[in-house]
């Protein structure tokens, strides 16, 4: 089978309580733990399992961002990816630009499957996989919770609002993965050492012919309004009374 490409985004670790900067220009990222976007980690785990089951010849990981993204790509290599590519830029990359960049790599690498997380937990856009599939003119299977590969096709179970939807897509395709697809493996220390010897390629964004100019302008970033603690009632009668006071007739 073919190569599998996995896209990893460096984001604020999901355990960090995010704080808005006092000048409202963004959220605090200085001195904050950064990690692979958790959904992208699931994407990588799925690709590694494919390779281990003989369904992929190679797994390579790709990231777009500053040189700091090397850390997340190295973690991806330690998890088991064969090689890594960093598209280095300090610019803010919107999903459409990310999709255009990934498309260039696809054209060069010709993967049989591209796997990404269903969304990044920083911007929560949930756009890049769908845009990439569109620009590539290939199928997408978003929010995947189960993947089966049969004869050049993928049978994908998708977590949709109404339940579980099953679709069949021809390969190559783009898969965006949901939380329950798998449980990513832990990285062991010897793997971190081994990962240092794996191929690591860095490309300057200027070397790609891609329009990355942002379309949207961030005006301000604010903390959300928080809910206040309400009243405590003593028993069920008190509960029903309090609900009636709020206008509910149950």
């Amino acid at each position: 089978m073919d190569k599998v490409m996995v896209c990893l985004k460096r984001v604020v670790d999901y355990n960090v309580r995010v704080r808005v900067k006092p000048d409202n220009s963004g959220v605090v990222t200085e001195g904050v733990k950064m990690s692979i976007n958790p959904f992208d980690e699931i994407a990588l785990e799925e690709a590694l399992r494919m390779r281990e089951q003989g369904n992929a010849s190679e797994v390579f990981v790709v990231s777009i961002g500053s040189s700091d993204c090397q850390q997340q790509l190295r973690t991806g290599l330690a998890m088991g990816a064969d090689r890594a590519i960093l598209i280095e830029t300090d610019a803010e990359i919107e999903p459409l630009a990310a999709a255009r960049i990934f498309l260039q790599l696809i054209e060069k690498e010709q993967p049989g499957l591209v796997i990404l997380g269903k969304q990044a937990i920083d911007d929560d856009n949930s756009q890049t996989p769908q845009m990439l599939a569109t620009l590539w003119d290939r199928p997408q299977a978003t929010f995947a919770s189960k993947l089966e590969l049969i004869d050049g096709k993928a049978i994908v179970t998708r977590e949709v609002d109404a339940g579980l939807e099953v679709i069949e897509v021809d390969l190559p395709a783009v898969l965006s993965v949901d939380l329950r697809l798998n449980e990513p493996r832990y990285v062991k220390l010897p793997d971190i050492m081994k990962a240092k010897k794996k191929p690591f390629e860095t490309l300057a964004i200027a070397d790609l012919d891609v329009d990355i100019a942002p379309q949207f302008e961030t005006v301000t970033v604010e903390a959300p309004e928080s809910r206040q603690r309400g009243e405590m009632v003593a028993d069920v009668a008190g509960l029903i009374g309090a609900l009636k006071e709020k206008g509910f007739s149950l």
């Binding site: 959220v27 999903p95 937990i121 929560d124 949207f216 302008e217 961030t218 970033v221 903390a223 959300p224």
Partner: peptide
């Protein structure tokens, strides 16, 4: 074109508010 995800409030014809970081911050976008 790019896309704007999860509009939670329209401020004017081009300016919108949307949640990021799972709603732990709200960004105003033009």
């Amino acid at each position: 074109v790019g896309q704007l995800s999860d509009i939670m409030e329209v401020l004017d014809a081009q300016t919108f508010r949307r949640p990021i970081y799972a709603g732990n911050a709200i960004v105003t976008v033009k």
